[in-house]
């Protein structure tokens, strides 16, 4: 069981809390404390919107330990609206419907479970932007 490892990164994983560089304004995710653009220290928290688009994707048929029961599943590099690329799974989508450039949004889902007795690890995944037709779509 690796409890502390997951606990310390919960902010990033549950709600995409990264950083913004106070020197050059670069938005940083995952957080790395040293700005990749200007190499100055950057520790100011910044919560990303969760909006982005698919930069690349792949469907995994042969899964690593702990992920076998989810296979096949689709993973992606997602270009966040604020700039950074992030690696994550796609969810709520069939592999054949994924396209490069497809708009996606962040959701918090189960990443994996530490067996039947261990903890559940939650984190960000992305899915096709959910329709928002509000009351217009009513059919009573």
């Amino acid at each position: 069981m690796e409890v502390a490892r997951f606990w310390r990164t919960k902010g990033q994983r549950y709600q995409l809390v990264g950083e913004v560089c106070p020197s050059c304004g670069e938005k940083i995710f995952p957080p790395r404390d040293v700005c990749p653009a200007c190499e100055k220290e950057a520790k100011t928290p910044y919560t990303f919107s969760g909006k982005g688009e698919v930069y690349s994707y792949s469907t995994i048929y042969s899964a690593p330990e702990g992920f076998e029961k989810y296979a096949p599943y689709t993973v992606a590099l997602v270009r966040l609206a604020e700039g950074p690329l992030v690696t994550a799974q796609l969810t709520d989508v069939d592999a054949q419907d994924v396209k490069v450039g497809m708009p996606v949004e962040m959701v918090t889902r189960v990443l994996r479970e530490d067996g039947e007795r261990g903890m559940v690890v939650y984190g960000y995944k992305f899915r096709p932007v959910c329709a928002n037709q509000g009351a217009a779509a009513q059919q009573i």
Binding site: Y14, Y70, V107, V110, V120, Y122
Partner: peptide, 13 residues
Amino acid sequence: PGLDEDVATMSIE
């Protein structure tokens, strides 16, 4: 629910 969903994830959304 999907394989990656439970009451916590659905409640969050």
